[in-house]
């Protein structure tokens, strides 16, 4: 069974420490990722999505620290690897598509060199010529002309840059791709095409992909499963269609009712209140102050992420009763 899992994350905890204060940005997160699967992770800003992504690649910077947990990739816990082994694991097993910001490529180095150095750092035994051919092929796969290889990042549009990043992410054919808000800096038209490209290359590789974002529409189109994060915890993990048709966690329900729908005309509902500060989390379930159905138990006890059906998980005391 474990062969069928691309990445298994168990009770991952990441904290920001300042002085003797500890802020749990990612708190006890557990999930499995299957080959070829696209797992969407959504949540408000500050819910720990990006911290989770960076911690999985061990790119988090102090004051962020991994406080515990494991991430099993290829039978090894990558959180326990030595620095050099980790360096080799990055990109060859686990690659990153950065936020679609304009700034992810080195401004003074040609695209081809930025792609080639990723290959060279991993000693694949390819000649310069083979690497150049490979780069040309990859650029074609993401819909860019080969001439882009000779260009500098400032000569490319935002969408082209993001395509370069996609080509770069699959250059070593990793088994897991982490896409951290891959299209957030692009306009909606380009967003759709870039996302389509990303999904295509991911499917061809049969790589597992984590898509981080807060665009529910994009998730609905791309993800197979959706994980919802709230205040550092995963509160629901469900296949995408069941999530949209029958959300389990009260937060998920509110999220969906805040989305416009073409089928029914209704007043859009917001979620009352705002996400709590991680420094002063409410007792019990972190969502209880905003939850319309909270009970006494919710104020006292932190709910665990429990399996509620064969494919669904939710962290709510009331889920059984609700469903």
């Amino acid at each position: 069974m474990s062969q069928d899992i691309a990445l298994q994350v168990n009770s991952l905890r990441v904290s920001y420490r300042s002085g003797d204060r500890e802020v749990k940005a990612v708190d006890d997160v557990t999930f499995s990722l299957y080959p070829g699967e696209r797992l969407g992770i959504v949540g408000e800003s500050g819910s720990g999505k990006t911290t989770l992504a960076l911690a999985l690649m061990r790119l988090h910077k102090p004051p962020a620290y991994i406080m515990g947990g494991e991430a099993i990739l290829d039978g090894r816990d990558i959180l326990a690897l030595g620095l050099d082994e980790m360096r080799q694991t990055r990109w060859s097993k686990l690659s990153l598509i950065p936020q679609g910001s304009m700034n992810s490529l080195n401004p003074v180095v040609k695209v081809k060199h930025q792609m080639a150095d990723a290959v060279e750092a991993h000693e694949r035994g390819l000649t310069k010529n083979e690497i150049a051919k490979h780069i040309d092929h990859l650029l074609g796969r993401v819909g860019l002309p080969g001439s882009v290889a000779e260009m500098y990042p400032h000569e490319l549009s935002g969408g082209m840059k993001q395509r370069v990043c996609i080509a770069l992410a699959i250059i070593l054919e990793p088994s897991v791709i982490i896409a951290d808000e891959p299209t957030s800096a692009l306009d909606v038209v380009v967003q759709r095409v870039v996302m389509q490209t990303l999904n295509d290359v991911q499917a061809q590789l049969n790589a597992a992909m984590i898509i981080i974002g807060h665009d529910m529409g994009l998730m609905a189109q791309s993800a197979d499963r959706l994980a919802v994060m709230y205040a550092g915890k995963m509160v629901e993990v469900s296949p995408i269609s069941s999530f949209f048709h029958d959300p389990q966690h009260p937060y998920s329900k509110l999220l969906i009712s805040s989305l416009p729908s073409p089928e029914e005309k209704r007043e859009l509902a917001g979620i009352p209140g705002s996400q709590p500060s991680l420094l002063e989390l409410p007792s019990g379930c972190a969502f209880h102050p905003r939850c319309p159905v909270a009970e006494d138990r919710c104020r006292a006890e932190i709910p665990a992420l429990r399996q509620i059906s064969s494919q669904r998980h939710a962290a709510c005391h009331l889920v059984e009763e609700l469903s």
Partner: peptide, 15 residues
């Protein structure tokens, strides 16, 4: 951001 990406690529510290 390009430094984060460089590190994610698994480049050596020297590079």
């Amino acid at each position: 951001d390009y430094l984060t990406l460089a590190e994610a690529k698994g480049l050596s510290g020297r590079r």
